[in-house]
Computed example of a mutant assay.
Amino acid sequence: MSFQAYIDNIKAKTGKSPEDFKKLAEAKGFMENGALVKTVKATEVTNWLKEEFELGHGHAMAIYATFKGKKS
């Protein structure tokens, strides 16, 4: 599955884009000024996405990758 397919599936399931998740992550204290807080671990973010949005691990990691700036 391509990265874009992951993002499309997440949008279809949750109604949220990567930008929406970034705003929510800032509200949770995972991000500041558009960047991940250095002390935040990937597991913290992926667990939050799995619990609150019922995303699978791969989909949660795709959102985390957008937080790291690896994909847009």
Score class of each variant (00 low, 15 high):
Ala25Gln: 13
Gly15Asp: 02
Glu52Phe: 03
Gln4Pro: 01
Tyr64Phe: 13
Asp20Asn: 11
Ile7Thr: 10
Asp20Pro: 02
Lys68Gly: 06
Thr14Arg: 10
Val37Asn: 15
Glu52Arg: 02
Lys11Tyr: 06
Gly69Ala: 10
Phe53Ser: 05
His57Leu: 11
Lys23Trp: 04
His59Ile: 00
Gly58Ala: 11
Trp48Glu: 11
Lys16Ile: 01
Pro18Leu: 00
Lys13Cys: 03
Gly34Arg: 05
Glu32Gln: 12
Phe3Cys: 07
Lys50Ile: 15
Asn47Asp: 13
Glu32Gly: 01
Asn47Ser: 08
Glu32Val: 06
Ala60Phe: 05
Trp48Ser: 09
Val40His: 03
Lys28Arg: 14
Lys71Pro: 00
Glu32Leu: 08
Gln4Cys: 04
Ala60Thr: 11
Glu51Pro: 01
Lys50Ser: 15
Ile63Pro: 10
Thr66Phe: 01
Leu24Phe: 12
Met1Pro: 09
Ala65Arg: 15
Glu51Met: 05
Thr46Pro: 07
Leu49Glu: 00
Thr43Cys: 15
Thr39Ser: 14
Ala42Phe: 00
Thr66Cys: 13
Leu36Ser: 04
Phe30Asp: 04
Ala62Glu: 11
Ala60Ile: 03
Glu44Gly: 05
Lys41Met: 07
Ser17Pro: 04
Gly15Trp: 02
Val37Met: 14
Glu32Trp: 01
Trp48Asn: 10
Lys41Leu: 02
Met61Trp: 02
Lys38Pro: 07
Gly34Ala: 06
Ala5Lys: 08
Pro18Asp: 00
Lys68Ser: 07
Lys70Gly: 11
Ala65Phe: 01
Lys16Asp: 07
Leu49Cys: 04
Ala27Arg: 12
Asn33His: 14
Lys28Trp: 08
Glu54Asp: 14
Leu24Thr: 14
Lys71Arg: 09
Asp8Asn: 15
Glu52Thr: 03
Leu36Phe: 09
Gly58Cys: 06
Leu36Cys: 03
Gly29Thr: 09
Asn33Pro: 01
Lys11Arg: 10
His57Ile: 14
Ile10Ser: 08
Lys38Asp: 08
Gly15Tyr: 07
Val40Ala: 12
Val40Ser: 04
Lys50Cys: 13
Ile63Cys: 13
Ser72Leu: 12
Leu24Val: 15
Thr14Pro: 11
Phe67Lys: 02
Asn47Ile: 03
Asn47Met: 08
Leu24Pro: 06
Phe21Ala: 05
Lys23Thr: 10
Leu55Gly: 01
Asp8Glu: 14
Phe3Glu: 07
Met31Asn: 09
